[in-house]
Simulated scan of single mutants.
Amino acid sequence: MTGAVRGTGLLVAGAALALACAASILVGAHAMSADQAIAAFTDFTGSDTDRIVRYIRLPRTVAGVLAGLAFALAGAVMQGLTRNPLAGPGLLGINAGASLAIVLAMGGLSVATPTGYVWFAFLGAAVAAVFVYTLGSLGFGGATPVKLALAGAAFAALCGAITTAITLLDRTKFENFRFWVVGSLTRADIESVWGITPFIAVGAVVAVMVARPLNAIAMGDDLARTLGTRLVAVRALGATSVVLLAGAAVAIAGPVAFVGLVVPHIARFFAGQDYRLVLAWSALLGPTLLLFADILGRIVARPVEIQVGIVTAFAGAPFFLYLVRNRKVATL
């Protein structure tokens, strides 16, 4: 694929993301035109339409862009670091660890905003990453894809059980949490969204920094060392990126399933195996997928909304089964 074709493809992906953002502003229970949506920013009068655009749909759209980008980049970096096609912040328990830490902060410390409990999300994500990788590395063969997936599933189930138990102890206190835990963009507000943005920006920059070394790691540790790659430093930076991206995304949108697993594989279909291009495609496709899933949840069961995490789970589960059964993606 030539550079011109790849550049055109990225432009098309960017246009699809812009379309998803526009649709996220316009589509919902309250019908509005494009002119009305634009007027909410250029000529704010305090009408219902203006308030819906500024205080509900804009924060929801920005949260979807940030969370989709973060989940997708985190998944791509995890798959590159572990050379595991099944790696992703949801499947390997990173989201579950961050979620448990957040609910403990909500219950024990009465922390109520994403900017407050994002630090706990980072801690939970880091503990999950260390625990799952250590458990998956035990025994013969080291950290194989299947062992990591099983360790992640076990850890996620444990965290989910504890999270559910804590939630059920106080139904009133955790009313908002029960909506958030399935993966939702409906609770986002603009102040919290902008407060989380710096963490995702730093995580994205670190992910870009390790893109070239990930290409070397894909050829094996020995060859990567021969090419001058500092494996310990690259893995430390990559893990830092994953913790920042996944922790911030969970804080803002909840543990949305399968975005981090599916999007990097779609990106490779267009970009090939070069992680510099895979990350670029993932950064565009992740938000696009998440926003369209959120839009689908708004319209498929009107007037009731289906939370975005449920939509992505239904869409991502068949793809996961395909990855498990397809031997061609057994290694990256």
Results as ranks from 00 to 15, higher is better:
2 T>M: 02
2 T>Q: 06
3 G>R: 14
3 G>V: 08
7 G>C: 02
8 T>N: 06
10 L>H: 08
14 G>Q: 08
14 G>T: 06
17 L>N: 02
24 S>P: 00
28 G>F: 10
31 A>G: 03
33 S>V: 02
36 Q>V: 01
37 A>Q: 06
40 A>E: 09
40 A>S: 14
43 D>I: 00
43 D>M: 03
45 T>H: 15
52 I>L: 15
53 V>T: 08
61 T>Y: 07
64 G>C: 08
74 A>N: 07
76 A>T: 09
80 G>D: 13
83 R>T: 04
84 N>T: 03
85 P>V: 12
86 L>S: 10
98 A>H: 01
99 S>V: 07
99 S>T: 15
100 L>P: 00
104 L>R: 03
105 A>C: 09
106 M>D: 00
107 G>T: 14
107 G>A: 15
116 G>F: 14
117 Y>C: 02
120 F>V: 02
128 A>C: 11
129 A>C: 05
132 V>K: 06
141 G>E: 08
152 G>F: 06
153 A>H: 01
155 F>T: 06
161 A>S: 13
162 I>E: 06
163 T>I: 04
163 T>A: 12
164 T>L: 15
165 A>Q: 02
175 E>G: 05
178 R>G: 00
180 W>D: 04
181 V>S: 12
183 G>P: 09
183 G>A: 11
189 D>R: 14
192 S>W: 12
195 G>W: 07
197 T>S: 14
199 F>N: 01
199 F>H: 09
200 I>V: 15
203 G>M: 11
204 A>T: 01
205 V>M: 13
208 V>T: 07
208 V>P: 00
213 P>I: 13
215 N>R: 04
219 M>T: 15
220 G>A: 12
227 L>Y: 05
229 T>K: 05
229 T>P: 00
231 L>W: 13
237 L>G: 02
237 L>E: 02
238 G>C: 02
240 T>H: 04
241 S>M: 07
242 V>R: 07
242 V>K: 05
242 V>P: 00
244 L>N: 06
245 L>D: 10
251 A>P: 00
253 A>N: 07
264 P>V: 10
266 I>K: 01
267 A>G: 12
269 F>G: 01
271 A>I: 07
273 Q>L: 10
276 R>I: 03
279 L>I: 11
281 W>Y: 15
281 W>A: 10
282 S>P: 05
283 A>Q: 10
295 I>D: 02
298 R>S: 09
300 V>W: 10
300 V>D: 01
304 V>N: 11
304 V>A: 15
309 G>M: 09
310 I>A: 12
313 A>P: 01
317 A>G: 05
322 Y>W: 15
329 V>M: 13
331 T>K: 05
332 L>G: 07
